[in-house]
């Protein structure tokens, strides 16, 4: 049973690691499917994490924290949207600006408000999203072999945001492929001329897309600071926004594919902390750095077309200008 225990705890940890990636990747899908490159996932997430921690600490209510995180991320999204849509600016540069700004502002404000070198004060459990034990988890875990512990350790026991993340994937899939908004969103990312000539405002579709991306980044950031952890720390996203971007590409801009990529990357992160000093037969000790590099390496390999081919939405990154 020991082996199962280890496996299940690894899987449970994978899901927890994957959760912020999932939110951010879905954010990336909405944005990029509408034709707006979102390098700024990292910065939005970071600022969202900060805002959630601050609001939750000040109000004592994690739901307010979530709203705070979402609100800030929407603001950053609108900034990115304004630069990309209205000003027809370079979307990569705008995204980078968001990231720089978030790195700087979170520490600057945190430092000024709490004087802890950019950290926010530790949160009590009441100020956080904590694990939920699903009905029957304990009983099943003790009485049913394998399936029971699987339910108890892998499926049950996560905080609410983890379950929301999976709901968001299903919702995203449904929105993209079963609603009018989804049809228009996908069309905008491929051929904005077609959308415009059909009498739909390209700008409005894109603004809505980046706002949704903001909301989802707010969830991602909130999860990091007040669910997975109990405070905001400097640079606590540590590249997760970029990993989410990699997952979007790896998942070929499809929610199902991106979910799979996020779970894989989450699994690798969970593994990373567990393989240190572990001898693997035949291979020896694997460097933990390898695990942190794998998502990036396979994204490069995929983009280079060595395994399959990731084809981005055709109009992604291109500001829409009416043709003459």
């Amino acid at each position: 049973m020991d082996m199962f225990d280890q496996l299940f705890s690894l899987l449970g940890a994978s899901i927890r690691m994957a959760t912020p990636l999932i939110f951010a990747a879905m954010a990336g899908i909405y944005s990029e499917r509408s034709g707006i490159v979102d390098i700024g996932l990292e910065g939005k997430m970071l600022f969202g994490a900060f805002a959630a921690a601050v609001v939750s600490f000040e109000t004592g209510n994690p739901f307010f924290g979530l709203l705070g995180g979402i609100a800030i991320c929407i603001l950053l999204s609108l900034m990115h949207g304004f630069a990309s849509v209205k000003m027809r600016g370079d979307q990569v540069i705008s995204g980078l600006a968001v990231n720089f700004l978030a790195s700087g502002l979170t520490v600057t404000l945190g430092h000024a408000w709490y004087s802890q070198g950019g950290l926010t004060p530790a949160l009590t459990n009441a100020q956080r999203f904590t694990g939920i034990t699903l009905p029957g988890a304990e009983w099943l875990g003790e009485n049913i072999p394998v399936i029971g512990p699987l339910y108890e350790q892998v499926i049950s026991g996560h905080n609410i945001l983890v379950y929301v993340a999976f709901g968001v994937v299903a919702l995203t899939y449904w929105v993209l492929f079963n609603t009018r908004f989804g049809l228009r969103l996908r069309a905008t990312g491929e051929e904005p001329n077609a959308v415009d000539s059909a009498g739909i405002s390209v700008a409005w579709v894109r603004y809505r897309a980046v706002i949704i991306a903001g909301v989802l980044c707010g969830f991602a950031g909130t999860y990091l600071s007040i669910a997975q952890n109990a405070a905001f720390q400097r640079e606590m996203t540590s590249g997760r926004g970029y990993i989410a971007l990699a997952a979007v590409i790896f998942g070929k801009w499809h929610p199902r594919g991106a979910l799979a990529a996020c779970l894989l990357f989450g699994f690798l992160q969970a593994l990373e902390t567990r393989v240190q000093n572990v001898e693997i037969p035949m291979i020896g000790e694997l460097p933990s750095q390898l695990f942190s590099a794998i998502p990036y390496i396979i994204t490069v390999v995929l983009l280079a077309g060595f395994i399959g081919k990731a084809i981005a939405p055709k109009a992604v990154g291109v500001p829409y200008v009416k043709e003459r």
């Binding site: 600016g89 370079d90 980078l96 600006a97 720089f100 700004l101 790195s103 520490v107 600057t108 070198g117």
Partner: peptide, 25 residues
């Protein structure tokens, strides 16, 4: 002391934003 040296990142971000992404403004 209440101003963190990371403030320079804020300025960096804003410069990138105004000279790059918002060039047209």
């Amino acid at each position: 002391p209440s101003i963190s040296p990371q403030m320079v990142l804020v300025i960096q971000g804003l410069v990138v934003f105004f000279t790059g992404a918002l060039d047209r403004l």
